[in-house]
């Protein structure tokens, strides 16, 4: 199929033709038109010459020292990465440890007051109810400490995740 296309259309196809970005039928259309059209042929020749001039530009090779200096910078980066990798488990352990310490302190405080209230109850059963109520506030404390520790751990994990996501996006 030979399409009769105007020079304005063909002119837009000359660049992709030169770059090998046209389909075989499109190529054939351009070739057919250019063969019979002096204006478009001249436009194509001029375009081809510009492309040749661009391709003939001298290509510089990287200086000999570049590989060594690049790899030195990469190794510095590697050490930085290794250092931050080794700190990460330490930071995680520290958070878990804090959470556990906080919770056991709370449990111990609660336990002590339980013992104290039992002692008191033995001497005076009337105080038992009062002390149980006190224990109730300790239980709340335990819950608060436990959930704050979980929140902190969650926030840290989220921050790590976001940092990773952010750098990926920047680099891509």
């Amino acid at each position: 199929m030979t399409q009769i296309l105007s020079c304005t259309v063909i002119e837009k196809l000359l660049n992709p033709y030169l770059d090998g970005e046209l389909s075989p039928p499109e190529r054939a259309t351009v070739e057919h038109h250019v063969a019979g059209c002096r204006t478009c042929r001249q436009a194509f020749v001029a375009l081809e010459r510009t492309a040749l001039a661009l391709e003939a530009l001298p290509r510089l090779a990287a200086p000999a020292a570049l590989l060594a200096s690049t790899m030195a910078a990469v190794r510095r980066e590697e050490r930085k990465r290794a250092a931050s990798d080794s700190w990460q488990p330490v930071a995680t352990v520290a958070v878990v440890l804090l959470a556990v310490l906080g919770m056991s302190a709370a449990v111990m405080a609660g336990g002590e007051s339980l013992l104290a209230s039992l002692d008191a109850a033995l001497e005076d059963p009337a105080t038992l109810l009062e002390n149980l109520a006190l224990l109730g506030t300790h239980a709340e404390l335990i819950t608060v400490l436990g959930s704050s520790a979980l929140l902190v751990a969650g926030a840290l994990a989220f921050a790590q995740l976001m940092r990773g996501e952010f750098t990926t996006r920047v680099a891509r």
């Binding site: 570049l66 690049t70 910078a73 990469v74 980066e77 590697e78 920047v170 680099a171 891509r172």
Partner: peptide
């Protein structure tokens, strides 16, 4: 050099 360091990081 900087481009390669960024590539290495990412």
């Amino acid at each position: 050099q900087e481009a390669f360091v960024r590539v290495y990081q990412a």
